[in-house]
Simulated scan of single mutants.
Amino acid sequence: MRVVFMGTPDFAVPSLRALAAAHDVTLVLTRPDAVRGRGKRLEPSPVKAAATELGIDVLETNRITPETLDRIVAERPDIICVAAYGCILPDSVLDVAPLGCVNVHGSPLPRWRGAAPIQRAVLEGDELAGVSIMRVVHDLDAGAYCRQTTTPVGEKSCPVLMAEVAELGATELLAALDDIEAGRATWVEQDESQVTYAKKIDKAEMRLDPADPADANLRRVRASLDAAPARLTVCGKGVRAIDARPSDADVDAGSVLVRKGRVHLGCADGAIELTRVKPDGKREMEAAAWSQGLHADAPTWERL
């Protein structure tokens, strides 16, 4: 099939690569180059980089202008595939391809429609994350889906879980296109009574708090991404919690116990152990190395 693909971040790359191997991807739309990561230089989106490597024409745009729509129509796509493009698609796009427009959405719909489904699944303690291949419709993530699969969240960090779901999405997308092309796709309408929305993560939500349960603080660490990191204050200094695990240490809420190079934080109902951190203004390091600089006799921690 002739495919126009739309996507921007790392999450979309496995889907693009899978499509390019199995179908004729004639055009890729992605967000324009931007300052990404810790550098100050403009960098291409991961999708642009992958498309360039694959020799596919790329169109960079933040919105679907009349000129962009004309270009999409000129490609004569059989189907349009979307994965975390980051732009609202006008209704005029949805009727361009005879087989429609489908989206790789990172949740088992109707759970977590919206911008941050995988982070929300981690932050809210969901047992399962997943992916749905759904029709793009006018309302946000409200279309029927034809393929869906899940994976346990467990103790996975958000980056690990996102990579796993992205690969599942690529597999399900190819299967969906086979079904759609053969006319055997079964579309399931979402149960509106079960809908939840995954709004963008606010940085304030990710601040660890000694007044909260240990599990809530652990979930913040696991849900942490560069755009919204898990942070706290230890002995009056800011630090990012990169990795942590449950702890059975007996520590009062707000106290820090350093024992044999292990750093335990007291929470409302128990403790967590920091295993990797990034102090403000310093490099990322093991918590054991960082703990050597905690010279207070009775170190404490608090919400940043």
Rank of each mutant, 00 (worst) to 15 (best):
D126S: 13
R147V: 09
T149D: 04
V136D: 11
N217F: 14
A223K: 13
P229R: 04
R135F: 08
A253Y: 07
A83I: 09
I180K: 03
A74P: 14
G281E: 02
G37A: 01
S45Y: 11
V58G: 05
S15N: 04
K282G: 09
I272S: 06
V28C: 11
C235G: 14
E127D: 05
G154T: 00
G281Y: 00
D70I: 08
I88Q: 07
A34S: 12
P108W: 00
G100P: 05
V47K: 09
G261S: 01
L123A: 03
P66L: 12
R71D: 04
M285V: 12
L123P: 08
V239R: 04
D248Y: 02
R38E: 10
S247W: 06
I72R: 02
E127P: 09
P279Y: 06
T150I: 06
L19V: 12
Q190D: 10
Q190P: 05
E155Q: 15
A18V: 02
G114S: 05
V277C: 08
I56G: 06
D10E: 14
E167F: 01
A230F: 05
A268D: 06
V73A: 14
V35N: 02
A223H: 13
P117S: 00
D250I: 07
E53G: 00
D212F: 14
M285C: 14
T8C: 05
A298N: 03
R219W: 09
A296I: 07
H295P: 09
V234R: 12
K40N: 14
I72Y: 04
A84K: 01
N103Q: 00
D202C: 14
G55W: 10
P229K: 00
S15Y: 01
P159F: 04
A163W: 07
V256F: 13
T26Y: 13
K40S: 15
G143F: 10
G100C: 12
M162K: 07
D202L: 15
E286Y: 15
S157G: 11
Y145R: 06
D179P: 07
A289D: 13
H138G: 05
C158K: 11
V35P: 05
A230D: 12
E189C: 03
L173A: 00
L304Y: 13
A97P: 08
P152F: 00
R31N: 06
V73G: 11
A34P: 09
A163I: 02
W112F: 13
D126P: 04
A83L: 02
R219C: 09
C267D: 04
G183N: 07
L274D: 00
G281H: 06
L42A: 10
C146D: 05
L168S: 07
V122K: 10
L16P: 01
E60I: 02
D215G: 13
